[in-house]
Structures are given as structure tokens and as C-alpha cells.
Design a protein around this nucleic acid. Structure first.
Length: 422
RNA sequence: GGUGAGGUGGAUGAGUGGCUGAAAUCAGUAGUUUGCUAAACUGCCGUACGGGUUAAACUGUACCGCGGGUUCGAAUCCCGCCCUCACCGCCA
């Protein structure tokens, strides 16, 4: 969440930047500043009164020790009065603090200056395009036919076992998943990321810290008996490794990578968007996460983009990198670059990665700080990106590499998959 | 799931109602001294939210797993919850 100090310092500038993100509820900014004023006043008066109570209590203790019971009793009368004053103050403070917290989380992160103006995905900016477009013959088919033809994925079986959006990978299809996960993790750890294998369910505090709650509650599967949430991405458990911690400056940057299945309810999706592997309720993904010094986060963002780009290049897929416009960005992000690969048979671009700098929006919620050389603690910056989400990569690999005799695999996968084609 | 024992500052660990935001030791850090692959001594060394200051200094409040309660006063007493450990049960 945003820091109140930022809102106080320049409320009008904050509003302007929020407007770029297509945020409408501008009076919230003023509401927050007002609530914070109220909070400060209440605390000042509460603290003053409490100080009197504390001083009196100490005095009572000393009088009792001396045996001056009468004097002690007299002071007790005063204390009783102050305590009555404290009760309503305490209640008001709790109310104001809750309002402040509830309001503050309604503000999205501020977009970085270089975020393009725009409200819809059409207004995203294409940064660059890479890889060679395949030249498929007219007999090319979409991946949902290929997965059937080669017995790689059984969507109907998934329907029976669970429901739609829960595919069952079989035989070489399952092995391809495993190969990709293994390859992606190796690629990341070789670049200095430490591998984590996190829990696939988190508690509410963790979901709140990375911003899934309260904003996207309906997107997550919720195990109500134990109040756990199935993770929508490994970002949630892995970023929370550093919740409520104060790092040493020399511990930065923290670089983490993790494989996990991702669970998303995707309520309201339909049509060709959800056909085959395009959108699932459960899918596999490898994520990269960094926690860095605030001065370095934009440099690191470029590193992460280059890292994901190299990974896509190694898979020999045609791709493009988009800089998302303000209106299409996520709630918690300051800037986001999406990676899309071209699905030759569907003739459309499919998102396979999203690399974002959250600046201190997540770390402020998480209370993830570091102690600088000057001894002061300050919030770190957090970033993350997919490297990569599997389903659409698989869709493109299958479609773009289909031949009359089978499906070719890119060189880097040969040793993981144990064969050069399917 | 059951029974028992516990959860104190970076670590170990003292503290059963007031003089404890918390002993002591270790680690960390600044310095002094002696000098040589280091030792001794001294100071400093939690977090959050306020007040205050150009910035400090200084100062108020809260925090000893979390949340309530008793009391003039709670790390200390009571209740609920969470977690850890041991044993039992169950089990990949």
C-alpha cells in the first residue's frame, strides 16, 4: 500500500498519477489525510492521559511501600477519572485506525513516469519483437487438436476428476511439463536465483501482504475450514518469506525463484479465451522474485526483463514485449512489462510472463525493510516476473513446431525431455 | 486429534504484581590501549506511532507468541487462540 507520508506531502500529484491508472475515487486521498489527522489528534490526547495514569500508578506504588495508604487511596480516585476518559478515546482510535487501514488499501500503486497513458490493452506499447515467425502450412491445427492427436493432455478426463480448467497431462505431455519446469528452474538458479519450493496454500496474512487480499478475494480458491488460500502464483508465498523482516543492506539483492502450481478461479471467463490451454484454473509456473535496494529497482527490472527474454529466445519462440498502459496494469504494480508469444495456429499473441516493479507498495504492506549504512531502516523494493508460465508456452511450442511427422522441440529441451521431438 | 512442557530483544537466557523496555553472556558496532595472524577495557546497540529539532538531542505511548480480562499498576495472575517440543494416536 502507499505510504501516508507520500499522500500528505503531495496529494495533488498523487491524484494526477492515480488518474493515469484509470482510478476514479480521488476523494479517497483527502479522506486518508483527514483520517490520519484524526488519528494523530486522538493518539496525542490518549497518550497524554495515559501518561498521567502511569505516573499516578507509580506514585501509588511508592506510597504503598511507605505505608501511606490514605494518600494512595486519594490518588486512586484521580486515576479512576482518567481511565473513564481513556475508554472512549481508545474506541475512537480503533475505529479511525481501521478506517484508515481499510481506505489505504483501496488505493492502487502509483504508476511510474514512463508508464504509457491508456485505458485498454490496445493502448499498451510494444517495446520490441523477437524470434522468427513460423511458416505453417494450411493444415496447421491449434494445440487442442495436437494434444489429442499425440495424447499429451486429456481435458475431458480433467472435467471428470475435478472440473473444467483442470487438465490431466499424460505420457509425453506430463514429461514435457516436468522438462520445462526443470529447465526454467535451472536457467534461473544459474543466474543467481535461490530456488524455493513453497507451500501451495497460504494464510490470510500472506495473501494480504502481496495484495491478493482484499482486492482479489474472489480470484482465489479458499479452504474455509482452515482459512487457507490456494496460491494464485508462487509470488505470494515466496515474497512473504521476507514479511516482517529487517534485512541488512548487504543482504540485498535477494533473488528467489520457485516452481508452483497456480490456482485461479477466473470467474466470468468464457469463449475462445478459455479454449484448450489458453486459460486454466490450475497451471504450472516458475516465478522469479527480487527484493532490492530502492535505488536499484529499475536497473534490476531491466535485468529481469533481459533474463526472461533470453529464456524465451532459447525456446525459439516468436515473442514481443509490451509496456502496459496505466489502465491495463495490475493494482499493486508501478510498472509492468508483459511478454507474449505468438500462437501460429490460433494466430494470436498469448501472455506468458509479466514482469513488474512494485517499488515499496508490497514491502510497505509486508513491512519488509532494510537497515542502511546510516543506521536508518527503510522500505525495500520488490519485483517479480514469470519465467515462465507453462500452458501457453506449451500451446505455442506445439503449434509452432508441428510437422507432418511430429512436433519438434527446441534444442535446450532435448536433454531434459530425452528426445528431439514428440 | 490426545496428554504434558514451553513461547522474553540478532542468539543464549534471567525475571511470578510496582524501582523491568526488560539482568547477564555472546554476537554486532564505535573507540582506547597493548601490539601482531589477536587480546583487554570503555561506550553504544529493538520496533512502531506521536511531540520536538534544519537535523540531532530530548520526550510521550504501545509492544516480552496473538487477542481479551483482573488490578491504581501485568512479561509476571485469569480466559481463549496460535505456534514449538516430547510422548501417544493416525499416516504418505
Amino acid at each position: 500500500m502507499l505510504q501516508v507520508s507520500v499522500l500528505r506531502a503531495a496529494p495533488e500529484e498523487v491524484k494526477q498519477r492515480l488518474a493515469k491508472k484509470n482510478f476514479k475515487d480521488m476523494q479517497l486521498v483527502d479522506t486518508i489525510v483527514q483520517l490520519d489527522d484524526d488519528r494523530k489528534k486522538l493518539q496525542a490526547s490518549f497518550d497524554d492521559t495515559q501518561a498521567k495514569v502511569n505516573a499516578a500508578s507509580k506514585e501509588i506504588g511508592m506510597l504503598m511501600a511507605k505505608g501511606d495508604k490514605a494518600a494512595a487511596e486519594a490518588i486512586k480516585q484521580n486515576v479512576a477519572g482518567w481511565k473513564q476518559e481513556l475508554e472512549p478515546l481508545k474506541e475512537q482510535m480503533a475505529v479511525v485506525e481501521k478506517q484508515l487501514a481499510d481506505t489505504l488499501v483501496q488505493l492502487p500503486n502509483l504508476p511510474a513516469p514512463e508508464v504509457p497513458e491508456g485505458k485498454t490493452p490496445e493502448e499498451n506499447e510494444i517495446v520490441r519483437t523477437g524470434g522468427a515467425m513460423p511458416d505453417l502450412g494450411p493444415e496447421a491445427v491449434p494445440h487442442w487438436e495436437l494434444t489429442k492427436k499425440y495424447s499429451l493432455i486429456d481435458f475431458e478426463l480433467g472435467n471428470k476428476i475435478t472440473g473444467s480448467g483442470f487438465p490431466v497431462y499424460t505420457g509425453k505431455g506430463a514429461k514435457l511439463q516436468r522438462s520445462l519446469i526443470q529447465y526454467f528452474l535451472d536457467f534461473n538458479t544459474e543466474a543467481g536465483y535461490t530456488e524455493y519450493l513453497p507451500p501451495f496454500m497460504v494464510n490470510a496474512a500472506s495473501a494480504y501482504a502481496t495484495g491478493q487480499l482484499p482486492d482479489k478475494e474472489g480470484q482465489m480458491y479458499h479452504a474455509t475450514e482452515d482459512d487457507f488460500y490456494l496460491i494464485p502464483t508462487a509470488e505470494v508465498p515466496v515474497t512473504n518469506v521476507y514479511r516482517d523482516t529487517i534485512l541488512k543492506e548487504e543482504a540485498l539483492p535477494v533473488k528467489m525463484t520457485a516452481y508452483s502450481p497456480c490456482f485461479r478461479r477466473e470467474a466470468g471467463s468464457y469463449g475462445k479465451d478459455v479454449r484448450g490451454l489458453n486459460r486454466l484454473h490450475q497451471f504450472e509456473k516458475v516465478e522469479i522474485i527480487q527484493i532490492v535496494h530502492p535505488d536499484k529497482s529499475y536497473e534490476v527490472l531491466q535485468d529481469m526483463i533481459a533474463h526472461v527474454e533470453r529464456l524465451l529466445q532459447s525456446l525459439e519462440l516468436p515473442y514481443r514485449i509490451l509496456r502496459l498502459c496505466g489502465g491495463d496494469m495490475g493494482f499493486t504494480s508501478a510498472i509492468t512489462y508483459d511478454f507474449e508469444v505468438y500462437s501460429a495456429a490460433q494466430q494470436r499473441w498469448l501472455e506468458v510472463s509479466s514482469v513488474s516493479n512494485f517499488e515499496n507498495y508490497q514491502t510497505n504492506r509486508m513491512k519488509c525493510r532494510f537497515k542502511g549504512a546510516d543506521g536508518k531502516t527503510q522500505l525495500a523494493h520488490s519485483l517479480n516476473g514469470s519465467s515462465l508460465a507453462l500452458p501457453r508456452i506449451v500451446a505455442c511450442l506445439l503449434e509452432n513446431n508441428q510437422t507432418a511427422t511430429g512436433i519438434r522441440l527446441p534444442k535446450v529441451l532435448h536433454r531434459y525431455f530425452g528426445a528431439e521431438q514428440i
